[in-house]
């Protein structure tokens, strides 16, 4: 039997020769959209920050003057081409009122989850006329996902507890998303066209972002 020390002495050189045997020209392959997300979630890569900053210096200046500069992410989040989003900021919460003229008579889409953290399972799902409510749970953490269709005949109001919370703008698959963190509770709200998606729970922020990035509406 060949001694391990001998193999160890030659393994580096053997590896380089092994690589040489597999030396081929490699073309760039375009991986499908969402492919990196799956790996990124598995690898715990950090979620990307929003690339957009507040576009208008004028808006920023006005907000500073009116004393609501800390709510900049909220206002940026509320800029939406398809939906009218009203924002009311109170001491304890921020209320969003979402409506649209957009006509969407298609069948309501439901959320499906291409990735979940290990051990987290769907505990409850309610499919309502225009909304879907899904609750996930494992031993220590919980997450609620609500998806609501907004059309010309329906509107939605949502309230986010923003008192002493950290708010910031991130991106979920190219959509602006508002992330609010308070203690161990994280809320992420964003829109996929005329659907409002809201995730909230005690899972880690990275996990919630990864779940959000892997939600498919169909």
């Amino acid at each position: 039997m060949i001694d391990d020390n001998i193999i160890e002495g030659y393994i580096g050189e053997a590896r380089d020769l092994w690589l040489k045997r597999r030396e081929t020209e490699t073309a760039e392959h375009i991986f499908p959209e969402g492919f990196e997300n799956k790996i990124r979630c598995a690898g715990g890569w950090k979620h990307r920050p929003a690339t957009k900053v507040i576009a208008s210096a004028v808006i920023a200046a006005v907000l500073v003057m009116t004393g609501v500069a800390g709510q900049l992410p909220v206002f940026e989040f509320a800029q939406n081409d398809l939906l009218d989003i009203g924002v009311s900021i109170y001491d304890e919460s921020t209320d969003f009122s979402v409506s649209t003229d957009y006509v969407d008579n298609s069948e309501v889409k439901r959320p499906y989850f291409n990735w979940l953290p290990k051990g987290v399972v769907e505990e409850k799902r309610d499919n309502n006329t225009l909304s879907t409510f899904v609750r996930f749970k494992n031993e220590n953490v919980e997450l609620t996902v609500v998806v609501i269709k907004i059309t010309h005949t329906s509107r939605n109001n949502s309230i986010v507890d923003t008192e002493d919370a950290e708010s910031r703008l991130i991106e979920i698959n190219g959509n602006k998303a508002l992330m609010v963190k308070k203690n161990n509770w994280t809320v992420i709200d964003y829109f996929i066209k005329n659907y409002m998606v809201s995730l909230s729970g005690t899972l880690s922020t990275d996990d919630i972002v990864c779940i959000a990035e892997n939600i498919v509406l169909k």
Binding site: I6, I7, G9, Y10, I11, E13, A14, R15, D16, L17, W18, K20, R21
Partner: peptide
């Protein structure tokens, strides 16, 4: 190419 043992491992 390479030393005999490394070559044998790679092959």
């Amino acid at each position: 190419e390479g030393s005999d043992i490394a070559k044998a491992i790679a092959n």
